[in-house]
Amino acid sequence: MDGRTDRAQTPAEDAATRRRLPPEERRQQIVDEAVRFFAEVGLDGKTRDLAKRLGVTQSLLFNYFATKDDLIEAVYEKVYLDRLSPGWPDRLTDRSLPLRVRLLAFYTEYSALIFEREWMRIFMFSGLAGAALNHRYLKHLGEVILRPVLAETAALARGARQPDMEDIWNLHGGIVYVGIRQHIYRMPPPDDPDAAIARAVDKYLSYFGIRPED
Rank of each mutant, 00 (worst) to 15 (best):
L61I: 08
R100Y: 11
R83C: 04
V79Q: 06
K68E: 12
G130M: 04
R48C: 05
L99A: 09
G55C: 05
K52L: 13
G87S: 06
D69S: 14
A129N: 09
G127S: 05
T93C: 11
V56H: 00
S85W: 03
I122C: 04
F62C: 07
R121C: 07
I72P: 00
L60F: 03
Y64R: 03
L92N: 02
A66M: 08
D82G: 11
E118R: 14
R48G: 05
D82H: 13
L113E: 15
G87W: 05
T47I: 04
I72S: 01
G130N: 08
M120P: 02
E118C: 08
K52S: 12
R83K: 12
Y64N: 02
R102K: 07
Y80N: 10
R48E: 15
K52T: 10
S126F: 08
Y64G: 01
D49Y: 10
R102L: 08
Y107L: 04
M120E: 14
E118N: 13
S111Q: 11
G87P: 00
I72T: 06
D82N: 12
L54C: 03
V75M: 01
L97P: 00
K68G: 13
L61A: 07
W119C: 03
L50W: 02
F106C: 08
P86H: 06
R48L: 06
R95W: 12
L81G: 05
G130W: 09
R121H: 13
A112C: 05
D69L: 11
F125L: 03
T108G: 14
G45D: 01
R91L: 11
